[in-house]
């Protein structure tokens, strides 16, 4: 029986791949869960596009500072050693290759590492991009966290993205509720699968040809 990973389990699996001492930007949504599950054995410096390094967790109720917010506009705190800087410097960090890891959500990822995470084909809403394109091209390593399929069961990992691209050939690794996949010259290579997921079952819900690592393993989140 297939047992998809919970969002917290996916976050724990991502956290394992983030080395101690990394400078990391977590995108809005699923990626923010990663900060909650990184163990105390690692010192990770979180970056926020609005000018924060060393961002800490949400403040206790009543302690919110309306001007100290994260990219999702939620109140946050500053850890000892943290710093504030202006927007251009915040994006120099992103665009200039200074961040070690960027963890992003996605609507679609292609087998060549193209990322679509800023616009769908929905014309009723005004477009909005924020810092998505800067993060996708600038970080040294781009990790994507997403469900393997859409709510109505359509694949999000594809031979080619149908939604407008955020950036081309930028994604290094994808973590879904069903698998961990590397993106490289040979397309998607499945490294790990969730408990009960067979290669055939995974291929059936993926829109690109999959290769499976010879040492294919079952995901252990911790």
């Amino acid at each position: 029986m297939i047992r998809p990973l919970s969002p917290a389990d996916v976050a724990r699996r991502v956290a394992r791949d983030i080395p101690d001492g990394s400078y990391v930007n977590l995108g809005i949504g699923l990626p923010t869960l990663v900060a909650d599950v990184v163990g105390p054995d690692k010192e990770i410096v979180y970056h926020s596009e609005n000018g924060i390094l060393g961002m800490g967790p949400a403040p206790a109720p009543g302690q919110e500072d309306p001007e100290l917010i994260n990219a999702g506009k939620q109140p946050v705190t500053l850890l000892p050693g943290g710093s504030f800087f202006h927007h251009t410097d915040a994006f120099v960090m992103m665009r200039g290759g200074h961040l070690d890891v960027s963890v992003l959500g996605a609507f679609q990822v292609s087998e060549t590492g193209d990322l679509a995470n800023w616009a769908t084909d929905e014309a009723a809403l005004p477009p909005a991009v924020g810092g998505a394109m800067d993060l996708a091209v600038g970080a040294r390593r781009v990790l994507v966290v997403t469900t393997h399929t859409t709510r109505d069961g359509r694949p999000k990992l594809l031979s080619r993205c149908s939604y407008p691209l955020t950036a081309a050939a930028v994604v290094d690794r994808v973590y879904t509720d069903l698998a961990v996949l590397d993106v490289g010259p040979e397309g998607f290579v499945v490294r790990e699968v969730a408990p009960g997921v067979t290669p055939d079952a995974l291929q059936a819900v993926t829109g690109a040809a999959l290769r499976f690592a010879p040492d294919l393993a079952v995901v252990h989140p911790d």
Partner: peptide
């Protein structure tokens, strides 16, 4: 009218 610009490009 809307001109949409990536945030880092807007700043730069």
């Amino acid at each position: 009218e809307l001109e949409l610009v990536p945030q880092g490009t807007l700043s730069e």
